[in-house]
Design a protein around this nucleic acid. Structure first.
Length: 289
DNA sequence: ACTATTTCCTGGATGC
DNA sequence: TGCATCCAGGAAATAG
């Protein structure tokens, strides 16, 4: 609570809008919004742009799988949006990864086509699902064989026991381990930094050397951070799905992420930034050991 | 078997 | 004003 008031008192300097990054809470929010908006719809037709497409499955296969299929459910798995489909009695999945800049928008057919629109699925209602991704880090994929699940553990479902085991014997920085999707599915750079800050663990510490007590704190921190972000995003789901931008989707104040040089909200020390495994890592030297 | 590094991609910010 | 350069980062590919 004292932290919140500190934030409120902070004069808003250099309002460089923090770019929207779809990690677990954002994808969860988006998937819930899509579930509300398009579950039950039938995909009538599919358009996939030419050029180098951000696809993991051949364009033809995607189109053939989606066309005529009914969207039974939309859910999140790791950082993936999963459309569970029913097509002629057979199950299939349309899996969407947003990368850094990807968006899956629900649009009216008369709406202007945004730049960098790579795929459009026209629904029975006449509305359209549009995949837009300027940076092309996103990926579209379909699966028919097996039900898609993210490779790593779901951070909000994993037990403390299993969580702790993930890091055993890992000779990599704890930050890198948190980002490894094969271990935990859904944590990206923002929530890795925020979780480590709350747990009081420096990002460079080797995963193997983090004590059991610290792992317990980290486990709690990860769940707290993700839950709070989901709760914050939940209030503006429909805005996001319908709107062009992601403004207002995620308003949770970061305590360290992108706050290099600014005072730690707990102790006042300057937040530091170092590069770990090619990723910016933000931390407080006094609060994190 | 692991871990570390490079690559992809574009827009926005920064520098000269 | 304009152009070059850097940076953001998830995950696959490549290297060690």
């Amino acid at each position: 609570m004292q932290i919140l008031s500190a934030i409120a008192a902070e004069p808003e300097e250099s309002t460089t809008a923090i770019p929207f990054m779809p990690e677990l809470p954002e994808v969860e929010t988006i998937a819930r919004g899509l579930q509300r908006q398009v579950a039950g719809e039938v995909i009538e037709s599919v358009w996939i742009g030419s050029k180098p497409e951000p696809l993991k499955s051949p364009a033809r296969l995607i189109a053939r799988t989606l066309e005529g299929a009914r969207i039974a459910q939309v859910r999140r798995a790791g950082k993936h949006i999963v459309f569970d489909l029913e097509a002629k009695g057979a199950a299939a999945q349309w899996i969407v990864h947003l990368g850094m800049t990807g968006r899956m928008l629900v649009a009216q057919n008369q709406d202007e086509i945004a730049k960098h629109t790579h795929a459009i699925a026209t629904l029975g209602s006449g509305r359209e699902l549009r995949f837009v991704d300027p940076r092309r880090f996103g990926r579209l994929e379909v699966r028919t064989a097996q039900k898609f699940e993210a490779p790593g553990q779901e951070p909000l479902k994993v037990t403390l026991e299993t969580f702790a085991q993930l890091f055993h014997g890992r000779k990599m920085p704890i930050k890198s381990a948190l980002l490894n999707q094969k271990l935990l599915a859904g944590i990206g750079n923002i929530y890795a930094d925020e979780s480590l800050f709350r747990a009081g663990i420096r990002p460079r510490r080797l995963a193997d050397r983090v004590t059991r007590a610290e792992l317990h704190r980290l486990y709690d921190a990860v769940q707290q951070v993700l839950s709070e972000a989901i709760a914050a995003g939940g209030s503006s789901i429909s805005d996001y799905v319908n709107a062009e931008g992601a403004e207002g989707l995620f308003q949770v104040q970061h305590r360290v992420y992108r706050r290099e040089g600014e005072p730690c909200l707990v102790c006042g020390s300057k937040i530091r930034r170092t590069v770990i495994a090619g990723r910016s890592s933000h931390w407080c030297a006094k609060c994190q050991k």
